[in-house]
Computed example of a mutant assay.
Amino acid sequence: MQTLLDKSLSSFARTDLLQGPTPIQQAERLEQLLGLKAQGVGLFLKRDDHMLIGGGGNKLRKLEFHIGAALASGVDTVITIGGLQSNHARLTAAVCARLGIACELILTRSVPKAEVDYELNGNVLLDQLFGAEMSVFPAGTDSLAKAELRAAQLRDAGRNVMVLPTGGSTPLGSLGYARCAVEIAQQETQLGVTFNQVVVPNGSAGTHAGLAAGFQLLDRGTSIVKSYSVLSDRDSSAARTVQLTQNALALLGSSAIVQADEITIDGSQLGDGYGLPTLAMQDAVRLMARAEGLLIDPVYSGKAFAGLLADLRQGRFRSGDNVLFVMTGGTPGLYAYRETFQA
């Protein structure tokens, strides 16, 4: 049955990059190892790493709406920004390659890591394979200003250019995860299960904000979503997420007001900063690999899963609760962090 949210979303141009819903699977081995079955707690995984383009990942949901708008307006060049190992940059390059759009990446050395694998492997290698033009700048560079300057040059040369910010996390991009909320609700019906909490990492906030807006419009409320901040401290992440959720709701035609205490963000897993490994993250990545045979990345899902593990071990869920962990992809980043895992 089509919801009002479906109707609102259908008014926006969208390019199908997912080719159907991503699966949800029960993490039965993890449930066993963590003693969750005895507690009556269910743990499920939303496989947003399970996409066909560019190695997959959550940024594709945001790009569906950005690229939809780009194609509708005749854009021939997309410029985006991010850190050196940006998953969003990699997927933007992949989508542009598939659609025959020129792609330029303005990347900054925002993480103080200089290992050979970090510089040349992982997403950097894939950016090159997808044919993107890359420019790399020191930490602290205003990459958005660089992108706008380059866009102006290309427009002067007659090109039609779209500039995308970090992570594609705009109100328009967030609609990708509002749409994901509808997808999750449909899968709940199919699986015969209701999720009490949906858990995600929080970087540029678009994933959390989109899900929060979507569940709000499905009358589930924004607090069903919990995220772990991986880019900045908890308060900065919360302020960004509240504003983006509010803007996404407004874009969808809703007058709902988002209260700060309805946005649930945990800042315990950031560690020394964005992209910097923590022992809890390393343990979480290894546990997922050895218990379920699945890969999660060291920057986003690795830290978020570490936070969820802490909550599960501390008994923060009750018997009958079901938790959905969204695996947001980014696994090429594992190869950039070889020294972290093999030290």
Rank of each mutant, 00 (worst) to 15 (best):
A213F: 04
Q269V: 14
I265F: 01
R220G: 05
Q269E: 11
L244N: 10
L244E: 03
L211D: 03
Q259D: 13
G214A: 05
L249K: 08
A209R: 06
V198M: 02
L270A: 07
T194N: 08
R234I: 14
S268F: 00
Q269D: 01
V198E: 01
T207K: 08
G210I: 03
R220M: 04
V230F: 03
D219L: 10
I257A: 10
F215G: 15
G203W: 01
L217V: 09
G210T: 05
I257M: 09
S232K: 13
S232D: 12
R234V: 15
S254K: 06
P201C: 14
Q246G: 14
V199S: 07
S254G: 10
F195E: 05
G267Y: 00
A205T: 15
N247C: 12
V225G: 07
V225D: 04
G206H: 00
A238K: 15
L249Y: 00
Q269Y: 02
A238F: 03
R240Q: 13
V200W: 00
V225I: 15
A250R: 15
L211A: 07
D261W: 01
K226F: 00
T245H: 04
A212K: 07
A260F: 07
S232M: 10
I257F: 01
G271N: 10
L211R: 03
N196A: 14
S236Q: 14
A205D: 05
G267S: 02
I257C: 10
D219A: 14
A248Y: 01
T245P: 11
S236N: 12
I265Q: 08
G221E: 05
S237Q: 11
Q197N: 14
H208P: 13
L218A: 07
L231E: 05
A260Y: 06
I257N: 12
S237D: 10
V200N: 03
T264L: 15
H208K: 12
K226R: 14
T241H: 02
G221K: 11
S229L: 06
E262D: 15
S232E: 11
A256E: 08
L218I: 07
A212N: 03
T245D: 02
S268V: 02
D233N: 15
V258I: 09
A239Q: 06
L231N: 08
L251P: 10
R240L: 12
D235V: 08
A248T: 15
Q243N: 13
T241P: 09
N196Q: 11
L231K: 15
A250I: 09
D235T: 14
T222L: 09
G267D: 02
D261G: 12
G210H: 01
D261H: 07
A256Q: 11
L249D: 01
S223I: 08
V225N: 05
V193H: 09
L217M: 15
Q197M: 13
V242D: 09
T222C: 15
V230N: 04
Q246E: 06
G267C: 05
S223C: 11
A260W: 02
